[in-house]
Design a protein around this nucleic acid. Sequence first.
DNA 1: CAGAATCCTCCGTGATACTG
DNA 2: CAGTATCACGGAGGATTCTG
Lengths: 124, 124
Amino acid sequence: MTKEDWKKYSDVDGECAVRNVLDRLGDKWSMLVIIVLGVEGTLRFNKLHQVIGDISQKMLTVTLKSLEADGLVSRTVYPEIPPRVEYALTERGASLLPHMEGLAEWAATHMEGIYASREKYIGS
Amino acid sequence: MTKEDWKKYSDVDGECAVRNVLDRLGDKWSMLVIIVLGVEGTLRFNKLHQVIGDISQKMLTVTLKSLEADGLVSRTVYPEIPPRVEYALTERGASLLPHMEGLAEWAATHMEGIYASREKYIGS
DNA sequence: CAGAATCCTCCGTGATACTG
DNA sequence: CAGTATCACGGAGGATTCTG
């Protein structure tokens, strides 16, 4: 990342790629949903809900919709009764996985140190 | 990332490394501050404020404090008048940079497609 | 089963003013 | 210069109920 690329990160007018994408991914559930779909593969709505555990039905719906809108997740409806809807990563969504993995590994590696720092820290 | 590592990502009891770290990094400014310090190097408070441009003084203070508490950013006070305070990435903070870079490049690469998808998407 | 529709509650964030 | 101290708000997120 050179200074020449800098404008990509400092734009204030809402056209900064990093900020836009991280804003979207930075919500409470998007990254986790992507990771789950990446690890588990295609999942139905309720299965996804159950695997994540502590997400509300509403937020799962909202999160999936925004991921679908961005073309990161595909939604397949099977016209049966009872209804069946399957979610999976698109190619674009899957291309994010390596980066999530990288972050996950970084997190796992540095967790302990971070917690230790937090405890020692004397905030105001 | 195998299924064996899965528990690291699905823990609900607040001990999930990924969730903890991403929660912290997922706020509005942390990642940007890290990127800026990574690209620009050591910076004083006001310079940081000016370079980012659209962050409030309060949020810059808050963000820097939490990054310092986590040991990602160092804060050096020079006992002069007027005061001078310099911020820089710690080694731990710098170790995050490659991952930020990866995300940034992913974002830059897929931005256009994501925007195109958003426009075509017919949400409810 | 897979959601849609409401209502409601924090709290992250910003604006403003003040200080050592 | 580098912050603190307050006040105020908007919207992300949760709980609950309803539906095709």
